[in-house]
Write a protein that binds this DNA or RNA. Structure first.
Lengths: 150, 150
DNA sequence: GAAGATTGACTGCTCAATCTTC
DNA sequence: GAAGATTGAGCAGTCAATCTTC
């Protein structure tokens, strides 16, 4: 049992702002997407993930690992996306317990239409507020925080 | 109408990690608090905010502004916290539409008991992964992102 | 019995509508 | 009519239990 040092004031400040960023930044960007008629960010992440793989797509447990969503949560999210027509299920030949999920044509279309709006929001809320060097540092600091976290 | 430049790769990477940090880091820390028998982070924030002001406390709309929660959401959160015995309501003498919220003795106690656990989790998930300079930079970059947002 | 995935019951969030007081 | 705050109805997240296939 190593005894970690108590967090410094700078660490606590960084944490507090991370908590606040979740509440403010992420929800603002999400609200902008929504007001443009698009679904939540989570849907985008699923679509993007599936757009990167070849047929027959991915199985729920693979999505779970990539996106770090919980299984029971993912199960209902995928249901909704299938019902909305953005994803298609196909049975898995080698393992009858599972199935594959792939983008439908309209899912691929949604991804294409969302990106410019999403991109613009990222540019406005993040890009315009940081220098390139600051953006680099922010990305790398967050990357270090995520290391070793599941 | 200024036309913002499209976000650079570094900006997009920083954003993607921010989204991921929400899903992984924050929920990990929250889960640790929970498994220690404590309520969600949101409750902590309310308690902390109220611990900083003198009697008679704050009104819901003030909490809304400070914590950036939505009114209808806050209304039910406060209900739960009052019901749990951590907060007390008192009628507002000058405006009969509103009331004040203040910490109860057990709310103050909860705050005191939560902090060491929370602090330890912050140290382990954030402090131990960054140098002091990196923590400074992270805090200041997130601070810039939050400027002008709501 | 373990892994992949889903479901039921419950709790909490969201939107729009509402109520009261200013 | 606007501001402060709450509520009803519906949707999404959470936990534990379940079902099927391995």
């Amino acid at each position: 049992m190593t005894e970690p040092a108590p967090p410094t004031a700078a660490v606590i400040r960084a944490w507090a702002r991370l908590v606040k960023a979740r509440r403010v930044l992420l929800s603002t960007v999400e609200a902008e997407l929504k007001s443009a008629g698009f679904p939540p960010l989570e849907w985008y992440d699923v679509l993007l993930e599936l757009s990167r793989v070849a047929a027959p797509g991915l199985r729920p447990s693979e999505l779970e690992t990539h996106l770090l969503l919980e299984q029971y949560n993912l199960s209902r999210l995928l249901d909704r996306m299938v019902k909305a027509g953005y994803l298609e299920r196909s049975p898995s030949p080698e393992d009858a317990r599972g199935h594959y999920l792939a983008l439908s044509a309209s899912g691929r279309d949604l991804l294409t239409r969302m990106w410019p709006v999403y991109r613009e929001a990222i540019g406005r809320h993040v890009g315009s507020k940081l220098t390139e060097a600051e953006a680099q540092q922010l990305g790398s600091a967050l990357g270090k925080l995520l290391e070793g976290e599941s």
